[in-house]
Nucleic acid binder design. Structure first.
Lengths: 211, 211
DNA sequence: CTTTATTTTCTATAGTTGTAGAGAATACGG
DNA sequence: CCGTATTCTCTACAACTATAGAAAATAAAG
């Protein structure tokens, strides 16, 4: 039997090598799904519409995602992965308040691309309310974010840039909720409105920490 | 012709007075809708399910809400009205930091009832992303909340309980986003988890203002 | 070119949804 | 008890959904 693993092409045990990279194709389909959700909303993200957006016919998705829920769960998980990768890039080599600022600036919906991500993550939250698996995806990333923030706050305290009496757990929680709330504000802002004062809110919060 | 206005009962111009109070019935249907969304999620809030929850058959909703969208829009609008009424009660006769605290304590999902409201408002946000009418309902309430918060902050500054250099607009924005983010944290928390540190976050934030 | 396994299209199906509307049931005035 | 307007139930229907699977198209090896 000829399996689908790309490594088997190299091994040559398969008379006809497979043509499409399954993992790559999955990512393409996820990308098409994102575009649909960002442009038309999750209600329009039907299997047919996603296939059309990706340039395929209705049934072509099944070999890559057996069910729609598989596709959506993978797609949503990938949003968090992408964001976490971007965060890792931006905070690399930084610490303390600088790292915290970079972290938040990467999560805040400050440009069109991240406003689109907000339009994707809100439907995800809605689905996660009644889907423990999806809720776990969210919660695990949030735990990770909280841990990172607490570390940055601790570093900033050592550096003397954070001096408030409010404890770091509360501060991290405030900042996380502020970031989540900003997604909603951005996603529901009228089309064209770019300025929500999010940058001022972030700088203001960081200022409050140094008191 | 016999109209549906309750005043016509009193006038006696209608040979057979109407039996059900249309407005009251609409509220009952909205209540049933809320229960369905809170318990099973918005995906399960079908016309049939809502009718069943309210104790009626499928078609009985139509005289009160011609379409499902009418029902949902009214239901979501009513969530904001209720919350705003509760806020008005709780902040009545208060000012400054005390009013601000009462306001936030009323919005934060600190008990089961308000966690259920979070499970209703998140699907609403999701729908509002691609429905300008619903987005406006949200935005108008948020504008109102922001104005109230700025007023409380100004009062608190006069009283000397808010002294931070960060300007009130940024502070109000932070607090609003914190409240919105808390809805997400609460709605996606694993069942049974009640303590999210939201109270500590609020008190911490209010402490930060006095620096 | 032929063969073979893969990949994709296309059609079909079972289920669910919002909505419409005929008819039955209901409750009240007389 | 009867008539009447209201209210509700029930059935029907058209649209749309995810999914399954047969058939066609495709691409590479020999």
């Amino acid at each position: 039997m000829c399996h689908k693993s790309p490594t088997q092409i190299i091994l040559g045990s398969c008379p006809v090598p497979k043509i499409v990279d399954h993992h790559q194709r999955r990512l393409e389909l996820v990308d098409a799904t994102w575009r649909i959700i960002a442009r038309l909303g999750i209600e329009s993200a039907t299997m047919r519409e996603i296939a059309l957006e990706a340039g395929f016919a209705n049934g072509a998705l099944k070999p890559y995602f057996p069910t729609k829920d598989d596709l959506l769960t993978f797609a949503f998980g990938h949003v968090f992965n992408r964001t976490n990768e971007r965060i890792a890039e931006v905070t690399a080599g930084q610490a303390g308040l600088e790292a915290l600022r970079a972290f938040c600036l990467e999560v805040l919906p400050l440009d069109e691309e991240r406003i689109n991500e907000a339009r994707i993550v809100i439907p995800f939250w809605q689905k996660a309310i009644n889907d423990p698996g999806k809720a776990r995806i969210h919660r695990e990333s949030m735990q990770q974010w909280l841990a990172a923030m607490r570390q940055y706050l601790a570093e900033a305290r050592d550096a003397g840039t954070v001096t408030t009496a409010v404890d770091d757990a509360a501060l991290a929680g405030q900042l996380l909720n502020l970031l989540l709330g900003a997604q909603i504000a951005a996603a529901l802002a009228p089309g064209g409105q770019v300025e929500l004062g999010l940058n001022e809110q972030l700088e203001g919060f960081l200022t409050l920490l140094g008191c």
